[in-house]
Simulated scan of single mutants.
Amino acid sequence: MRRIPLLAAVGALLLGAFTAPAAHSAPSTFVHPGVTVSKAQLDFARTEVLAGAQPWKAAYDQMMASEYADLNRTPTPWATVECGSYSNPNHGCTDEREDAIAAYTDALAWYVTKDARYAQKAIQIMDAWSATITGHTNSNAPLQTGWAGSSWPKAAEIIRYTYTGTWANEARFATMLRNVYLPTVIKGSNSNGNWELSMMEAAVGISVFLEDKASYDTAMAKFRTRAAAYVYLASDGSVPKTVPSQNLDTTAKIVSYWQGQSTFVTGLTQETCRDFTHTGYGISAISHVAETSRIQGTDLYGTDVGERLRQALGFQSKYQLGTAVPGWLCGGTLNLGLGPVTEVGYNALHNRLGIAMTNTQTLTLNNRPAGSNNLFVAWETLTHGDNPN
């Protein structure tokens, strides 16, 4: 493991500066359902659940026992969702995120059971919000929009392309995504990196549902830039890559932005020294965008995105599993709590590509079945655990 001390000259800094990723074109024809989970993946999960195979049956049972799968759930839409820092004030923030997760949960439940009540419940929730919401306000509005905007298209894709019943207000839901969510998330953010990564996840997913190629390309380019600036690789140079709009043009500014960490090693993220929970948000969003891109025909796992994801998962997993924290890393103290965020990346990189990921594998298996973080991650042992598709 290469360690780079904080003695970087200006020339070295420039070597580590942002390099524009190659342009990524939207597919000529979008694949549906195609946001994070594909029809082939859904078919595999359904087959395994119905056969009673593990870990999928346990993951399904966990999902169905959750509040999100309750057919008696009443959606709670708000016209304006107001979210301050750490959702304080919380005027609709939890309601919106959890209703969006519930819609996705019901869509998954529909696909596995073919019980139309679950599809209709997902539609009821999506209709309630599309008839009501007009915007988001306060300091956490961009992140909130990204979190909820990541779950809505996952639910909508499954319902629109697998349910043969009526969704009379589908066009209104699409209008909600285009007018309420997309204009905010597509702008990105110069806050901590998990914000922009989550926002780009939402923008990519919404673009797939809307079949908006221009927005897809814009979101994917911003995603590539932010992913490169979020996870450090030794090949980046003496300091991490940066996002040009943030003007992190000195080593001191970069160190400050990286939570005061001045020794950079492969797999470290911009928020590792903040806490693993927010780091998990960023890692999860990277894996979700990479998975959506693969389904849409461009496999990013073989690019630097995949390498950054692999290294970030391995580095964080090692310490989440209890490895002693060295003094040079975050002052010798880490705030753990990575969350249920390893399944998608682990399946893609280890199971599909055959890459050894010992620490990530141990953590993933220990955490099965992976549940929900109640924000924008849900049921990924069911959808992606050892899924060959």
Rank of each mutant, 00 (worst) to 15 (best):
I4Q: 15
P5W: 06
L15E: 13
G16V: 03
P21C: 08
A23D: 14
S25L: 15
V31N: 05
P33D: 01
S66N: 09
R73C: 12
T76F: 08
S85A: 13
H91E: 14
G92S: 07
R97Q: 14
A107G: 00
A109S: 09
R117Y: 01
A119D: 03
I125V: 05
D127W: 02
A128K: 07
A128W: 02
A128C: 09
S130K: 07
T132K: 13
T134M: 14
G135H: 00
N140V: 04
P142T: 04
G149W: 01
S150E: 11
P153F: 12
N169D: 14
E170K: 01
F173W: 10
A174Q: 11
L177C: 04
R178T: 02
I186M: 06
K187W: 08
S189M: 11
S198I: 15
M199T: 06
E201V: 12
A203H: 06
V208M: 10
Y216E: 10
D217L: 10
M220C: 08
A221K: 13
G237C: 00
D249R: 11
A252P: 11
A252T: 12
S256F: 11
T263S: 11
T269R: 04
D275C: 10
S293M: 10
L300W: 14
R310D: 01
S317W: 01
Y319I: 10
A324V: 12
C330S: 03
T333G: 14
E343G: 04
A348W: 04
H350M: 11
G354Q: 05
N359R: 10
L363D: 05
T364H: 05
L365D: 09
N374G: 11
N374S: 13
F376M: 08
G385Y: 02
N389C: 13
